[in-house]
Amino acid sequence: MDHMPPDATETKRRLMQAAVDEFARYGLAGARVDRIAETARANKRSIYMHFGTKEELFDLVVGGSLLELAEAVAFDAADLPGYAGELFTLLESRPHVRRLTLWAALERPQPIDAEVAAYRAKIDALEAARTAGRIRSDIPAVELLAMVLALVTSWDTASWSLKALHADAPGDRRAAVEAAVAGLVHGVSSAA
Protein backbone atom coordinates (compact mmCIF):
# COMPACT_ATOMS: atom_id res chain seq x y z
CA MET A 1 0.00 0.00 0.00
CA ASP A 2 1.40 3.35 -1.05
CA HIS A 3 1.49 6.04 1.60
CA MET A 4 1.31 9.62 0.34
CA PRO A 5 3.60 12.11 2.10
CA PRO A 6 1.84 15.08 3.69
CA ASP A 7 1.25 18.07 1.43
CA ALA A 8 4.02 20.50 2.36
CA THR A 9 2.39 23.28 0.32
CA GLU A 10 -0.82 23.10 2.35
CA THR A 11 1.14 22.97 5.60
CA LYS A 12 3.17 26.02 4.56
CA ARG A 13 -0.01 27.89 3.63
CA ARG A 14 -1.59 27.14 7.03
CA LEU A 15 1.62 28.09 8.84
CA MET A 16 1.88 31.35 6.93
CA GLN A 17 -1.74 32.31 7.66
CA ALA A 18 -1.29 31.44 11.34
CA ALA A 19 1.92 33.48 11.42
CA VAL A 20 0.20 36.50 9.85
CA ASP A 21 -2.53 36.35 12.48
CA GLU A 22 -0.12 35.77 15.37
CA PHE A 23 2.33 38.53 14.40
CA ALA A 24 -0.43 41.03 13.65
CA ARG A 25 -1.93 40.41 17.06
CA TYR A 26 1.18 40.11 19.24
CA GLY A 27 4.11 41.53 17.27
CA LEU A 28 7.45 39.78 17.06
CA ALA A 29 8.27 39.78 20.77
CA GLY A 30 4.84 38.62 21.89
CA ALA A 31 4.27 36.02 19.17
CA ARG A 32 4.77 32.39 20.10
CA VAL A 33 5.96 29.75 17.66
CA ASP A 34 3.97 27.17 19.66
CA ARG A 35 0.73 29.07 19.03
CA ILE A 36 1.52 29.42 15.31
CA ALA A 37 2.11 25.67 15.03
CA GLU A 38 -1.01 24.83 17.04
CA THR A 39 -3.22 27.17 15.01
CA ALA A 40 -1.83 25.75 11.77
CA ARG A 41 -2.25 22.17 12.97
CA ALA A 42 1.43 21.55 12.34
CA ASN A 43 4.48 20.85 14.46
CA LYS A 44 6.91 23.51 15.55
CA ARG A 45 9.77 21.84 13.69
CA SER A 46 7.96 22.44 10.39
CA ILE A 47 8.10 26.21 11.00
CA TYR A 48 11.87 26.16 11.33
CA MET A 49 12.20 23.75 8.41
CA HIS A 50 10.10 25.86 6.03
CA PHE A 51 10.79 29.40 7.24
CA GLY A 52 13.82 29.54 9.53
CA THR A 53 13.84 31.47 12.80
CA LYS A 54 10.93 33.39 14.26
CA GLU A 55 12.59 36.63 13.14
CA GLU A 56 12.98 35.33 9.58
CA LEU A 57 9.33 34.26 9.56
CA PHE A 58 8.28 37.70 10.83
CA ASP A 59 10.29 39.43 8.10
CA LEU A 60 8.75 37.11 5.51
CA VAL A 61 5.22 37.81 6.79
CA VAL A 62 5.74 41.59 6.86
CA GLY A 63 7.47 41.66 3.49
CA GLY A 64 4.82 39.44 1.90
CA SER A 65 1.97 41.52 3.28
CA LEU A 66 3.51 44.76 2.05
CA LEU A 67 4.25 43.34 -1.40
CA GLU A 68 0.69 42.03 -1.63
CA LEU A 69 -0.50 45.53 -0.82
CA ALA A 70 1.86 47.11 -3.36
CA GLU A 71 0.57 44.78 -6.07
CA ALA A 72 -3.07 45.39 -5.17
CA VAL A 73 -2.93 49.19 -5.47
CA ALA A 74 -1.65 50.70 -8.69
CA PHE A 75 0.79 53.54 -8.16
CA ASP A 76 0.32 56.61 -10.32
CA ALA A 77 2.73 59.42 -9.46
CA ALA A 78 0.45 61.86 -11.33
CA ASP A 79 -2.53 60.89 -9.15
CA LEU A 80 -1.18 60.55 -5.62
CA PRO A 81 -4.54 61.51 -4.03
CA GLY A 82 -6.20 58.64 -5.93
CA TYR A 83 -3.41 56.26 -4.93
CA ALA A 84 -3.72 57.34 -1.29
CA GLY A 85 -7.50 56.84 -1.39
CA GLU A 86 -7.20 53.35 -2.88
CA LEU A 87 -4.51 52.41 -0.39
CA PHE A 88 -6.63 53.75 2.48
CA THR A 89 -9.64 51.69 1.35
CA LEU A 90 -7.57 48.53 0.98
CA LEU A 91 -5.98 48.99 4.41
CA GLU A 92 -9.46 49.39 5.90
CA SER A 93 -10.22 45.87 4.66
CA ARG A 94 -6.82 44.53 5.77
CA PRO A 95 -6.18 45.87 9.27
CA HIS A 96 -3.63 43.13 9.87
CA VAL A 97 -1.28 44.81 7.38
CA ARG A 98 -1.46 48.09 9.29
CA ARG A 99 -0.71 46.29 12.53
CA LEU A 100 2.17 44.33 10.98
CA THR A 101 3.81 47.50 9.68
CA LEU A 102 3.48 49.19 13.06
CA TRP A 103 4.99 46.16 14.82
CA ALA A 104 7.82 46.02 12.25
CA ALA A 105 8.61 49.71 12.76
CA LEU A 106 8.81 49.15 16.52
CA GLU A 107 10.55 45.80 16.66
CA ARG A 108 12.48 45.33 13.43
CA PRO A 109 13.74 48.75 12.32
CA GLN A 110 15.67 47.48 9.30
CA PRO A 111 15.04 47.53 5.56
CA ILE A 112 13.34 44.56 3.91
CA ASP A 113 14.86 44.02 0.45
CA ALA A 114 11.58 43.30 -1.34
CA GLU A 115 9.97 46.37 0.20
CA VAL A 116 12.95 48.55 -0.72
CA ALA A 117 12.62 47.43 -4.35
CA ALA A 118 8.90 48.25 -4.38
CA TYR A 119 9.57 51.70 -2.95
CA ARG A 120 12.43 52.33 -5.38
CA ALA A 121 10.04 52.00 -8.35
CA LYS A 122 7.64 54.50 -6.74
CA ILE A 123 10.46 56.95 -6.04
CA ASP A 124 11.60 56.72 -9.67
CA ALA A 125 8.03 57.47 -10.82
CA LEU A 126 7.83 60.44 -8.44
CA GLU A 127 11.15 61.80 -9.70
CA ALA A 128 9.84 61.61 -13.28
CA ALA A 129 6.61 63.39 -12.24
CA ARG A 130 8.65 66.08 -10.48
CA THR A 131 10.86 66.58 -13.53
CA ALA A 132 7.74 66.87 -15.72
CA GLY A 133 6.29 69.48 -13.35
CA ARG A 134 3.22 67.38 -12.45
CA ILE A 135 3.94 67.44 -8.71
CA ARG A 136 5.76 69.84 -6.41
CA SER A 137 9.51 69.82 -6.58
CA ASP A 138 10.48 71.36 -3.24
CA ILE A 139 10.08 68.11 -1.27
CA PRO A 140 12.43 65.21 -2.09
CA ALA A 141 10.59 62.24 -3.61
CA VAL A 142 11.42 59.87 -0.73
CA GLU A 143 10.10 62.34 1.84
CA LEU A 144 7.01 63.09 -0.24
CA LEU A 145 6.13 59.39 -0.44
CA ALA A 146 6.71 59.02 3.30
CA MET A 147 4.34 61.93 3.94
CA VAL A 148 1.67 60.50 1.61
CA LEU A 149 1.87 57.13 3.38
CA ALA A 150 1.76 58.86 6.77
CA LEU A 151 -1.44 60.66 5.76
CA VAL A 152 -2.97 57.34 4.68
CA THR A 153 -2.30 55.82 8.11
CA SER A 154 -2.66 59.01 10.16
CA TRP A 155 -5.88 57.94 11.88
CA ASP A 156 -4.30 54.61 12.90
CA THR A 157 -1.41 56.34 14.61
CA ALA A 158 -3.37 59.21 16.14
CA SER A 159 -3.66 59.40 19.92
CA TRP A 160 -6.72 57.71 21.42
CA SER A 161 -7.43 60.98 23.20
CA LEU A 162 -7.58 62.80 19.86
CA LYS A 163 -9.75 60.06 18.34
CA ALA A 164 -12.18 60.40 21.27
CA LEU A 165 -12.93 63.97 20.17
CA HIS A 166 -14.07 62.71 16.78
CA ALA A 167 -16.04 59.67 17.93
CA ASP A 168 -19.50 61.09 17.19
CA ALA A 169 -18.79 62.33 13.66
CA PRO A 170 -16.49 59.94 11.82
CA GLY A 171 -17.00 61.58 8.41
CA ASP A 172 -15.47 60.29 5.22
CA ARG A 173 -11.86 59.58 6.14
CA ARG A 174 -10.94 58.49 2.62
CA ALA A 175 -12.07 61.85 1.23
CA ALA A 176 -10.14 63.64 3.97
CA VAL A 177 -6.99 61.64 3.17
CA GLU A 178 -7.34 62.36 -0.55
CA ALA A 179 -7.84 66.09 0.11
CA ALA A 180 -4.82 66.22 2.44
CA VAL A 181 -2.63 64.42 -0.09
CA ALA A 182 -3.84 66.71 -2.89
CA GLY A 183 -2.88 69.74 -0.80
CA LEU A 184 0.50 68.25 -0.01
CA VAL A 185 1.35 67.13 -3.53
CA HIS A 186 0.14 70.17 -5.39
CA GLY A 187 0.98 72.78 -2.77
CA VAL A 188 2.71 76.00 -3.69
CA SER A 189 6.44 75.46 -4.01
CA SER A 190 8.50 77.61 -1.67
CA ALA A 191 10.97 78.02 -4.52
CA ALA A 192 8.33 79.74 -6.69
Rank of each mutant, 00 (worst) to 15 (best):
E55K: 15
E55A: 15
E56F: 10
L57E: 13
L57M: 15
L57Y: 13
L57P: 07
F58L: 14
F58I: 12
F58G: 14
D59A: 15
D59M: 10
D59T: 08
L60K: 13
L60N: 08
L60A: 13
L60V: 00
V61P: 10
V61A: 13
V62T: 14
G63K: 11
G63T: 09
G63D: 11
G64F: 02
G64C: 07
G64D: 08
G64M: 05
G64N: 09
S65M: 09
S65D: 06
L66A: 05
L66P: 02
L67D: 11
L67R: 11
L67M: 12
E68Y: 01
E68W: 01
E68Q: 10
E68M: 05
E68K: 06
E68L: 07
L69W: 03
L69I: 00
A70R: 00
A70I: 00
A70V: 00
A70E: 10
A70D: 15
E71C: 06
E71T: 07
A72Q: 12
V73H: 03
V73W: 05
V73D: 04
V73T: 06
V73L: 04
A74H: 09
A74N: 06
A74F: 01
F75E: 04
F75M: 01
F75Q: 03
F75Y: 06
D76N: 13
D76P: 04
A77L: 03
A77C: 05
A77I: 01
A77P: 09
D79P: 04
D79L: 05
L80K: 02
L80H: 02
L80Y: 01
P81I: 00
P81V: 00
P81H: 02
G82W: 02
G82H: 04
G82N: 07
G82E: 03
G82Q: 05
G82R: 05
Y83Q: 04
Y83G: 06
A84F: 07
A84C: 09
A84Q: 08
A84M: 09
G85N: 07
G85R: 05
G85S: 07
E86F: 00
L87H: 06
L87A: 14
L87Q: 14
L87N: 06
F88S: 10
F88L: 08
F88G: 05
T89C: 11
T89L: 14
T89K: 11
L90P: 01
L90E: 12
L90D: 10
L91I: 08
L91N: 14
L91W: 04
L91R: 08
L91C: 09
E92C: 11
E92S: 10
E92L: 10
E92M: 11
E92R: 14
S93K: 10
S93T: 13
S93L: 07
